[in-house]
């Protein structure tokens, strides 16, 4: 899949923001979430119809994401105002619960947009939502720790929460990469055009191998630009290393050092988000849509 900058930025940034929001509400990053979601509107080819995306809540994960995100803004905005003014009481608790629930809902819907796509094996796995939720909470928890270092009396519990999410997110990411390496689930060019080994008589074509002779177009098409992105394995490995080092290694190491000063804590959070941008880029670049089989790729 072609890694579109606007989507990568939107999922990572709103992920971090949503994770942070959920955590703040449980115990804001309005700007992060807003920037993320505005960026996803930029991705539309015909944004004047964006308002219609609220209309298919019953069937479409993208529609659900839009509805929950639209509800999150006023609710979390009000909640932040109450937090800043240190007012509230019961209504503040109610708003906290609502904000947290909505933030989780948006995160899960975003993940399910990808996880529900059957033609993309690397996305259609249960590790996709697990990754989105945990990575969002991990980067959000780091930001929260940085804020706690600056304002809270005790930052220790925040450090602990960040550490737990960091380890869980790391485990989820490694499990995801392990899962997509399992090529027994891969579809082949032969299956895509109905060639079955040993088939005889009526029914699918018989023969063991198939290859593309001619793709039928002289220059690129919508399909090649949308699905044709290729990433050499060697580069993928290098970039996974970068994502691991920036997204997990350095920030986790800093948690172990644990000096409760907001400047290095913020640097750790920014470093983590950089790593997650690389991770999200890979999530797209490593995904192979079945259309590529028709364009001659031997397997997905």
């Amino acid at each position: 899949m072609k890694p579109a900058v606007s989507i990568i930025f939107s999922t990572v940034s709103s992920g971090a923001g949503l994770g942070l929001l959920a955590l703040v509400a449980l115990c804001d990053t309005f700007v992060l979430v807003a920037a993320g979601l505005a960026s996803s509107v930029l991705h539309l080819a015909n944004p004047k119809n964006a308002w219609r995306s609220f209309s298919r809540f019953k069937s479409s994960w993208l529609s659900r994401e839009a509805v929950f995100a639209a509800a999150l803004f006023p609710v979390s905005g009000l909640y932040i105002v109450l937090v800043i003014q240190s007012k509230g009481g019961a209504s503040r608790i109610l708003l906290a619960v609502l904000t947290c629930a909505l933030a989780w809902a948006v995160l899960i819907c975003t993940a399910m947009i990808y996880a529900s796509l059957k033609p993309i094996r690397q996305w259609h796995t249960r590790w996709t939502p697990v990754n989105y939720v945990l990575l969002g909470h991990w980067s959000g928890a780091l930001l929260l720790w940085a804020i706690a270092c600056a304002y809270a009396a005790r930052s220790g519990p925040f450090l602990f929460v960040a550490g737990v999410f960091g380890l869980a997110a790391l485990a989820a990411k490694l499990a995801y990469w392990h899962a997509i390496e399992d090529s027994t689930q891969a579809l082949t060019l032969e299956r895509a055009i109905g060639v079955r080994e040993g088939a005889r008589g009526p029914g699918p074509i018989s023969a063991a191998h198939a290859r593309l002779l001619d793709v039928g177009h002289s220059h690129g098409t919508f399909l090649t630009s949308e699905f044709g992105f290729r990433l050499a394995r060697r580069h993928a490995r290098g970039l996974r290393g970068v994502a691991l080092a920036l997204g997990f290694g350095l920030p986790l190491a800093w948690l172990v050092v644990g000096v409760p000063r907001w400047q290095p804590a913020l640097a750790a959070a920014v470093c983590c988000i950089m790593g997650l941008l690389v991770e999200r880029w890979l999530f797209f670049a490593e995904a192979k849509h079945t259309v590529r089989l028709y364009h001659g790729d031997p397997r997905t």
């Binding site: 004047k48 964006a50 479409s60 033609p119 849509h289 079945t290």
Partner: peptide, 15 residues
């Protein structure tokens, strides 16, 4: 009604 989000093209296995 279409807003050009491309999601349906991603969901179609056949291009």
């Amino acid at each position: 009604k279409c807003m050009g989000c491309n999601l349906c093209a991603w969901a179609c296995p056949y291009g």
